[in-house]
Amino acid sequence: MKTRILGLLAAVSLVATLVVGWRLPPTEEQAGYARLIAVHPALAWTAYIAFGVMALGSLLYLLPATRSRKWDRLAGASGEVGVVFTALMLVTGSIWGRPTWGTWWVWDARLTLSALMLALLFGYVALRKVDMDVDRRAIISAVTGVAAVLVVPINHFAVTWWRTLHQGRSAATLAPSSNLDGSYLRAMFLGMVAMMLVYAWLLIHRIRLERLEEENRGADLAVALAERRAEAHDGAVSGAPDGGAVVGS
């Protein structure tokens, strides 16, 4: 029930972001593309949070004192949802970069870092998709999750020294003298709220699904076996040739 309210809030704020974003006035330099400020920073923000939650869940599972299946589920769910947000961030960024920078992709530090983050998440999710024992999967994906986040600061220095092109962080230009018009800022923050709500909603549902999957692991086999046994039993009672022969011999 509570998640239904959360889902409703997410949907409403998403629609509101769409409406507010759409009604933003076009700017001189970027024309209508400036409206992407309602979605792109929000997606990036949420993608980084999802990555961080994945890493945190992994770390908490890895530490013996806090080891609990729920942290594994949290990390797994956040990693999966994170793939969606990271991919969307790269796609919207690309769409924004084409008219403003002139290319779909530039080898800028932040872009490269985000692409590497997506690759790390891909590896993490791919590992979780492999069929194996739940406890084993939990421990190896926890190690993978922590190994993935450990490289981020090193990656950061590497790609920053390599090259830097991206404009400063959008929120870093929050000073009153900022040339970012108030309506754009409002749209950006509305978008952030909306994406965070969507993320939370997806996360909760993914965790729930994961728990159900774990509970029902192997259950379908047990059900099928019980059904077959019941069939054989019925056969024996009614004297059908196949079932009866098996039971009789």
């Binding site: 690759a119 590896g123 993935a148 590497a158």
Partner: peptide
């Protein structure tokens, strides 16, 4: 799986 796990980490 190994290349997918290692290459993004070894990128730097």
């Amino acid at each position: 799986l190994l290349p997918l796990l290692l290459v993004p980490v070894a990128a730097p």
